[in-house]
């Protein structure tokens, strides 16, 4: 019997952001459909960054540092390994500029960022330390040092977006706009940033996700609503969404606890915790994923490849 296929017509689309330098640019977003739905538009493939840090991280479980053993005190070597593992992007977290983690200055941070950018072909995401005042001073200097590399830099919040976005505009980068889990605050920040003449295709929205088991459902629904908003033509909800999955997933107890009879093998559990968080937020509509473990990267990409095979009626 003939079944009538139900197709939605979407007037809008997700903005397409271009990162990196030719010939190694990476395109992000640009979707004209719901995630992985091929029969009424064109979904785009999410891209994945592996995360590195400017200082050797403390407190990472062995499962996580083992794939990078011996490299984590050298951001350049660490970044190269990420590319070998198949990352589309490298995300450099400037943890060392935080006043409680070394308090590195802006010039030192910029030098690290520049050496990483020079060492790899893939585009770079640079994230500050998360302390808004310090990032406001550091990130514009980093942006200047990375001029010409067309990076994605953040996180800009409602309290520090002016210097961060100005640095991105002046030196040709895109900006990560971070807001708490709230669709209206995200929209408001996008408006503020575009009012500084940074176009919406140079914004990536960071909804401050929670990982599996710790608030993922809020992020899932916020991201789903953003995608629907973009498809229905709301331009201030149309920038692509970035999900900082690795740092959230590896903080959980389920990723940190060793092998137990009830919870099974830690490595499989922890990697799956990270991967499942990412796949579910991709299903909601995320476009850029920052992960930590190379196996999570491979498993995520494997699922995404399967879901990107066109399924039409």
């Amino acid at each position: 019997m003939a079944v009538k296929i139900v197709r939605e017509r979407w007037p809008g689309k997700v903005y397409e952001m271009v990162l990196g330098r030719r010939p190694n640019t990476v395109r992000v977003g640009g979707d004209t459909s719901l995630p992985f739905i091929h029969f009424e538009g064109e979904p785009k493939k999410p891209v994945v960054a592996l995360e590195i840090q400017d200082i050797e991280p403390l407190g990472w479980p062995e499962v996580l540092w083992a794939p990078f053993a011996g490299l984590m005190s050298d951001p350049v070597a660490w970044a190269r390994r990420c590319v070998e593992y198949g990352a589309d992007l490298v995300a450099l977290r400037l943890a060392g500029v935080h006043p409680e983690s070394g308090d590195a200055g802006a010039e030192a941070a910029a030098a690290v960022a520049r050496s990483v950018a020079q060492a790899v072909d893939v585009p770079l995401v640079v994230l500050g330390c998360g302390m808004e005042e310090k990032d406001a001073r550091v990130l514009p200097v980093v942006a200047e040092a990375l001029e010409g590399y067309n990076c994605l830099i953040g996180q800009a919040t409602v309290d520090n977006y002016k210097p961060v976005a100005a640095g991105c505009r002046a030196y040709g980068h895109s900006v990560v706009a971070t807001s708490p889990l709230d669709i209206n605050l995200a929209k408001q920040l996008n408006i503020l940033i575009t009012e500084m003449n940074l176009p919406p295709e140079r914004i990536a929205m960071d909804p401050s996700i929670g990982p599996l088991g710790y608030g993922i459902e809020y992020a899932y629904s916020i991201i789903e609503r953003k995608r629907l908003g973009a498809l229905m033509g709301d331009r201030m909800l149309a920038p692509p969404v970035i999900c900082l999955v690795g740092e959230e997933a590896w903080k959980t107890r389920e990723a940190q606890v060793g092998d137990t009879p009830e919870w099974g093998n830690q490595a499989r559990r922890a990697v799956l915790w990270e991967t499942m968080t990412a796949v579910m937020l991709a299903l909601a509509g995320g476009s850029i994923f920052v992960l930590r473990h190379p196996e999570s990267l491979a498993r995520f990409q494997g699922r995404i490849d399967v879901l990107m095979q066109p399924q039409l009626y």
Binding site: G213, I216, N265, R269, M276
Partner: peptide, 20 residues
Amino acid sequence: ADPAEILPLVTWRLNVYTDP
């Protein structure tokens, strides 16, 4: 039937079926 796989799965189901 690997608990390391079923624990995340059961957690995801719990999360997505909560009342928003």
